[in-house]
C-alpha cells in the first residue's frame, strides 16, 4: 500500500489521491474539496479529517490557514435522531 491510496476521510472513504487530484484540477479551497469529494461530510462531521484537508490545501498552494475556521461547523455537531431534533426525550 502506498501513500496515494491512503484513506484520508474514513467516514466517506476518500483517498489522498482523490483529494490531491481535486485540489490540483480545481485549484480549490477546503470547502470546495468537501463539496466535490464528500471528504469531511460523513457521520463524524469532519472531526477526524478536517485538519488534514486544510493542511493538504495549504501545502498544495491553496489559501494559507487564517483566523477564519476553514471548514465551517454546522449544527447538529453530533449525530442525533429526528426524534431528538423534534424535541422528544431519548
Amino acid at each position: 500500500m502506498n501513500e496515494e491510496s491512503t484513506v484520508v476521510c474514513r467516514c466517506e472513504e476518500i483517498t489522498l489521491k482523490e483529494i490531491q487530484g481535486t485540489i490540483e484540477k480545481f485549484n480549490c479551497s477546503s470547502r470546495e474539496v468537501k463539496l466535490r469529494t464528500r471528504a469531511g461530510m460523513g457521520s463524524c462531521g469532519g472531526r477526524t479529517c478536517r485538519s488534514t484537508i486544510d493542511r493538504l490545501v495549504e501545502q498544495m498552494g491553496g489559501p494559507v490557514i487564517s483566523n477564519e475556521v476553514p471548514l465551517s461547523y454546522r449544527p447538529p455537531v453530533r449525530p442525533v435522531s429526528f426524534g431528538i431534533l423534534g424535541g422528544a426525550k431519548e
Binding site: 500500500m1 501513500e3 491512503t6 484513506v7 489522498l16 477526524t48 479529517c49 488534514t52
Partner: peptide, 12 residues
C-alpha cells in the same frame, strides 16, 4: 481538545 490524526498507509 481533540487529537489530530496522521493518515498512514494501513491506518484503517
Amino acid at each position: 481538545a481533540s487529537e489530530t490524526p496522521i493518515p498512514i498507509p494501513g491506518w484503517t
